[in-house]
Nucleic acid binder design. Structure first.
Lengths: 216, 216
DNA sequence: GTCTATAGAACGATAGAC
DNA sequence: GTCTATCGTTCTATAGAC
């Protein structure tokens, strides 16, 4: 369940809604389907979460806060360890990627594939009512990691850095949102259940992409 | 318009539907909205395209065929030029990325930002009825480019190559689907209207990511 | 807190006139 | 080929009994 503070019915709605929203998107899921698959009454969702928008927003905000909290904590810890110095580039990449590719279950319980897929999709679907949530609970941590990365690439023109960083983050979000796509892309040869391999490969991928310093 | 073979009304429906589907997804757009914004009658869409699924499939299949055709043509041309030899890695990346980031208007007319966004989104939304279209009109060209890339990385374990290739293609699709995301991510510092900079940066990004050969 | 019942709107799709 | 009119369904949301 998402949060213990919810009762049995409320928690069942949340987990079912998260799974369905992650799979079919906000517009692709009806409250009738959520309540039917959750085995609760249709009116329950309105009673507990007012309306569909609020239900979706609540789920997403909760996951975004989990994500950002883990990232900011690890980054602060790494910066403290280095005495406010430079955190290794590969570690910053890990801080960004691990919640999406191999979340530590003792730190991020219940943060499963559906949660990651939901986040990946929400960052592509431009639902207007999510803007305040993203600005408050997502972008700050991404910006902080970006600043930490920037210290490794001081000579890179600002625009070039932003392009690279966008591509890296985009690849990560895409990997979270389109795990199935990878299967069809690779015709099954790539075992995307192997989360350790995913993280290891992404780390190498991102480090190489970020530190590329060809002349032009 | 998409295809000259359609009449005035049919073409207006296609272009309007493409824009709306690209922005809000398949489930997020109603036929009433499409016909209203296109300025045509609601019944027109059923008359010309049978139903909503067929309309969406027709648009997507047309764009996928444009995309794959350009890619396969350029790849065949490059392979012929090298006498069946090895096509430069950066050129293969260009063949993959250019239709999404800076399409040649003389080769891909009408292939605008909405078309690219539609493709990027369709590859994340797992609409079951699209599977045959993707298998026929998208995956073959991606697989061919993958094979051409593979020749540059013969020593790389197959799984590692697929991971890297997936990340590169994912970053590309994400860039096409979430251009707005890049703006919020970078707080406007990154001019994503500069398509030449996008392609140049992506090329460097992808080449560095693919050719990384760190020990582990 | 959970249910039934239903209001009120929007949906995809079609029949039939022109 | 384009229109009006409408059918039947599904949707979100709520009112009110228990």
């Amino acid at each position: 369940m998402l949060i213990d503070a919810y009762g049995e019915t409320g928690a069942k709605v949340l987990t079912t809604a998260e799974t369905l929203f992650a799979e079919y998107g906000y517009a692709g899921v009806s409250l009738r389907r959520i309540t039917a698959e959750a085995g609760v009454n249709l009116a329950a969702v309105n009673y507990h979460y007012s309306d569909k928008q609020s239900l979706y927003t609540e789920i997403l905000a909760y996951r975004l806060r989990q994500l950002s909290s883990v990232r900011l904590d690890r980054l602060a810890e790494a910066e403290a360890r280095t005495g406010g110095g430079t955190v290794p580039l590969a570690e910053i990449v890990d801080i960004l990627a691990q919640p999406f590719l191999q979340p530590d279950e003792s730190i991020l319980p219940t943060f499963g594939p559906a949660s990651r897929r939901l986040l990946g999709r929400a960052l592509i679907e431009p639902l207007g009512f999510l803007a305040p949530v993203l600005a408050a609970d997502f972008q700050p941590a991404v910006a902080r990691c970006g600043q930490a990365l920037r210290r490794h690439l001081p000579a890179l023109p600002p625009a070039d850095f932003l392009w690279r960083y966008s591509f890296v983050v985009g690849a990560l979000h895409h990997a979270a949102a389109a795990l199935h796509d990878m299967k069809t892309l690779t015709t099954g040869l790539c075992a995307n259940e192997d989360s350790a391999a995913a993280l290891r490969n992404f780390r190498r991928f991102a480090v190489a992409a970020l530190t590329s310093d060809e002349s032009r």
